[in-house]
């Protein structure tokens, strides 16, 4: 998970900012078996996503491994302006993390 695991698109329409993001992550539930070895693949999933706009928390989302591989998330909030920065951070159950920012268009 070294780099570029988050893609963000943030758009303002009226007073509502809609943020869409795509994350690169295996999202292993821990229930799947490795086809070759027959052993369970350890759980490895994003457990928390935090979104900030203009330094304020706008969403905290917690997940299980039930969110699809390479997860997609879209959410909305009010109170931001064009050009404001939206920051998305994720952390996974194995202590991995990443974050990225994008300007609201």
């Amino acid at each position: 998970m070294a780099k570029k695991t988050i893609k963000i698109r943030a758009k303002l329409k009226g007073d509502k900012t809609t943020v869409k993001c795509l994350m690169t992550h295996p999202m292993e539930t821990g229930l799947r078996k490795d086809k070759k070895t027959g052993k369970l693949i350890p759980a490895h999933f994003i457990s928390e996503v935090v979104a900030e706009a203009g330094g304020k928390n706008v969403l905290t989302s917690n997940w299980s491994g039930g969110v699809s591989k390479n997860p997609y998330l879209s959410f909305a909030f009010t109170g931001a302006a064009k050009g404001d920065e939206v920051k998305i951070s994720w952390t996974d159950n194995q202590g991995g993390s990443d974050s990225a920012s994008a300007k609201i268009k």
């Binding site: 229930l31 979104a51 706008v58 969403l59 905290t60 917690n62 039930g66 699809s68 998330l73 959410f75």
Partner: peptide, 25 residues
């Protein structure tokens, strides 16, 4: 009917609008 039914929680922050999308298993 998933093995563990809870998939995600979304806690609204400042100005949060209840309008979320994702893709689930």
């Amino acid at each position: 009917n998933n093995n563990t039914p809870l998939v995600a929680t979304f806690n609204m922050g400042a100005g949060g609008v209840p309008d979320v999308s994702t893709r689930i298993k």
